[in-house]
């Protein structure tokens, strides 16, 4: 069968997407990660599943931010080590969807 060359997919940086979303950032984080548990985690599901790309392994260490959290809860469900403590931000803070 003839193979048609497909156009390479252009990936939009997640930051550009998050720029469209409204976040009222609370000073108190609503995500805590017990990062000791992440050191020997090979799968690091949180890094891949988070729709805001909040988790990253840098130099073997888990780094994360809570500010642009879309508040879905996927990270703590995906984490097999139960290393993510996740709660809703304070009422009135966090993400607000407007056009969805």
């Amino acid at each position: 069968m003839q193979q048609i060359a497909s156009e390479p997919v252009v990936m939009q940086p997640i930051e550009e997407r998050l720029e469209l979303v409204r976040f009222k950032v609370d000073k108190r984080p609503h995500i805590r990660v017990h990062t000791e548990a992440c050191r020997d985690c090979d799968l690091t599901p949180c890094v891949y599943v988070c729709p805001a790309g909040l988790f990253e392994i840098l130099g073997g260490e888990m780094h994360f931010s809570y500010e642009h959290c879309l508040e879905c809860g996927t990270c703590y469900v995906a984490c097999e080590r139960k290393a993510i403590e996740w709660d809703y931000p304070r009422g009135g803070w966090g993400v607000s969807f407007r056009a969805s």
Partner: peptide, 23 residues
Amino acid sequence: QIASLAQQRVRPYELLDRFKQHP
């Protein structure tokens, strides 16, 4: 499915990009 996403090591927004750019 979250488990499948983690297993395949794909980011959800990349899937969105791929879907939007499917011919």
